[in-house]
């Protein structure tokens, strides 16, 4: 090597490596999907009745079953992390090498602006409630819509920082679609489910497309 390397390109390529196979998208899809289900179940009268019945039949300790959705969600994320490592070691990164990505991927400015968007949305919702233009349910729905806007912006900022157009589109589509949460005539738990499942589908599709592409270009296992 005699000419000066393109340092920016090398840095960008290495940062993108972690996200190029779509497994991160799939992990986020599992996390958001199961979190949505857990939030919905914890507020669902049918589930609460079931937990009460179990506690009545088997004793108070059995009420711990109410934690089951949360345990499943956390367990699934851990399992997904293990699976990601396994698939990469065995197929995807076998020839191209292993990289452990930096702990901080999202730039601080993006995180701050994302939090501002989220809090701003909630403040607007509360303001509208104070002047009585909306009801209490709207404020609760705004919580999810604002979370969607904030998360969408995080994806856009990350995509721009890493040079991944897929994330810019994903963030824009998801962020705009999160506005629909405001107009759904659902209760808080159901909106949580819609939010989790909606984002999970978006991230799942994005991850599946990227993974398919990565698997096609990965060398076959001996």
């Amino acid at each position: 090597m005699t000419a000066q390397p393109d340092v920016d390109k090398l840095i960008r390529q290495t940062r993108q490596y972690e996200f190029s196979d779509g497994l991160r998208d799939l992990q986020l899809a599992v996390l958001l999907g199961l979190s949505g289900v857990a939030a919905w179940l914890s507020l669902e009268p049918g589930w609460l009745t079931f937990v009460a019945t179990v506690a009545k039949t088997f004793g108070r300790w059995a009420a711990w079953i109410s934690m089951l959705p949360l345990v499943v969600a956390v367990g699934a994320v851990w399992a997904m992390l293990w699976l990601m490592g396994f698939v990469r070691r065995r197929w995807l990164w076998r020839e191209s090498g292993m990289v452990k990505s930096s702990r901080i991927v999202v730039p601080r400015g993006v995180n701050v602006l994302s939090a501002v968007i989220m809090v701003g949305g909630i403040v607007v919702g509360l303001g509208l409630r104070i002047v009585r233009w909306v009801d209490d349910a709207f404020v609760l729905r705004m919580l999810w819509a604002a979370t969607g806007w904030g998360f969408g912006y995080t994806l856009i900022g990350t995509g721009r920082h890493l040079g991944l157009t897929r994330y810019v589109w994903l963030g824009a589509v998801g962020g705009i679609a999160s506005t629909a949460m405001l107009f759904l005539t659902l209760n808080f738990g159901q909106v949580a489910l819609a939010f989790g499942v909606g984002w999970s589908i978006l991230l799942g599709v994005s991850g599946a497309i990227a993974l398919r592409r990565a698997l096609r270009s990965a060398p076959a296992r001996d």
């Binding site: 090398l10 090498g97 452990k100």
Partner: peptide, 17 residues
């Protein structure tokens, strides 16, 4: 440059990159 963009990288990755 490569190592500055990640926490760690193995020899194979550095070789390819």
């Amino acid at each position: 440059a490569i190592l500055s963009a990640c926490e760690s990288a193995d020899f194979t990755y550095l070789l390819n990159a």
